[in-house]
């Protein structure tokens, strides 16, 4: 077993580590890639062994063995015929796999539009008509056992969408829509991260995919798309938080469904309270981190687009945090 030096966090659990997520697939669009990887490693190890053995013979072998190796025949066999055979086989497999993984989209899958932004992810669940029925950010919910088509777009620079346990990566390019399928075969949280250098805090641009049992997912979607918001829990700070959200400027950039807050520049906060992470997959989501993020996110994720709100008092921050925690 791999030695652990850390206790794993929720974010860490989701985002990777041991076993390597590439080799630990959780869906049919990642399974063959893991299989391919293992075969490739095996072949590579074999070839390396052959080369090193040949080199060993060339350097230290007996005169007879060396003589057999020391001619053009060795080149023809080792350098031409052997690679030609192995590579042909690999190429056939690789190309077929490419073909099957890029097979045309059927059209009846659930669709989600994911837009890469500097440095977070805008998520819109699309209805049958292609219109967005639900907005969210940085956390993608999918049902287990069925393919989900992602329409990948970018609002600014090139990003790349990558959830290693569910699929390979695909770039999000301004002016283009790239289609990608993911599918999870078991409920769970799967981490992802931007894989294309997108400037500044590219390192801190993560997200999570949460897979639910189909009925749970249906319930979740139904609750969220329903017009009425669940009642907010009673808390003395709640009203002030709500008011601050409007007056302190939050609403100019953020949206909370069912309230007057309709900003679209920043992530949608309608369901912030349920999210696993804060700041696009980098912080745990709790009241303290919320306060810290609101108060001065620049100290946490330098260069991100949210200004520091250092003029808010701790009471204000707490009120806002309480209010946002209640958004479920």
């Amino acid at each position: 077993m791999w030695p652990r030096i850390s206790t794993r966090s929720a974010v860490g659990d989701a985002l990777g580590g041991w076993p390597p997520p590439v080799l630990d697939p959780a869906g049919p669009y990642a399974d063959p890639l893991a299989m391919l990887s293992w075969v490739l490693f095996a072949i590579a190890a074999l070839v390396l062994l052959v080369v090193v053995a040949a080199l060993w013979v060339a350097l230290f072998g007996s005169a007879r063995r060396k003589g057999r190796l020391g001619g053009t025949r060795a080149i023809w066999i080792g350098g031409v015929a052997f690679p030609a055979v192995v590579l042909s086989a690999l190429l056939v497999w690789g190309l077929s796999l490419t073909g099957s993984l890029t097979a045309p989209i059927r059209g009846d899958e659930m669709r989600v539009k994911v837009t890469g932004e500097m440095w977070w992810w805008r998520i819109a669940y699309l209805g049958r008509d292609g219109q967005a029925v639900l907005h969210d950010a940085n956390e993608l919910h999918i049902p287990v056992g069925q393919p989900v088509v992602l329409e990948l777009e970018s609002a600014d620079v090139i990003h790349s969408f990558w959830v290693p346990r569910l699929s390979g990566k695909l770039d999000m390019i301004p002016g283009r829509t790239n289609m990608m399928r993911i599918q999870a075969d078991e409920p769970g949280v799967f981490g992802g991260q931007c894989a294309e250098y997108c400037g500044g805090p590219h390192a801190l641009m993560g997200f999570v995919v949460v897979a639910h049992e189909p009925e749970d997912f249906a319930r979740l979607m139904a609750a969220r798309t329903a017009g009425a918001r669940p009642p907010l829990p009673a808390h003395p700070d709640l009203a002030r938080g709500a008011q601050l959200f409007q007056t302190a400027g939050c609403a100019a950039c953020h949206r909370i469904a069912g309230t007057g807050a309709n900003g679209i520049a920043g992530p949608d906060l309608s369901f912030l309270g349920t999210r696993q992470t804060l700041g696009a997959g980098i912080l745990p989501n709790n009241r303290g981190t919320l306060m810290g993020w609101i108060g001065n996110s620049q100290a946490i994720k330098p260069g991100n687009r949210m200004p520091p709100y250092s003029m808010l008092s701790s009471d204000d921050l707490r009120a806002l945090a309480v209010y946002l925690e209640a958004q479920r």
């Binding site: 206790t7 966090s9 929720a10 804060l278 912080l283 745990p284 709790n286 303290g288 981190t289 306060m291 810290g292 993020w293 108060g295 001065n296 100290a299 946490i300 994720k301 520091p308 250092s310 921050l317």
Partner: peptide, 20 residues
């Protein structure tokens, strides 16, 4: 690190280095 104390406090060895 797991609970995110660093999002408000500057604590050596803990990320991030918040200033709230």
């Amino acid at each position: 690190n797991r609970t995110g104390c660093g999002s408000c406090h500057r604590i050596p060895g803990v990320w991030p280095e918040g200033s709230v």
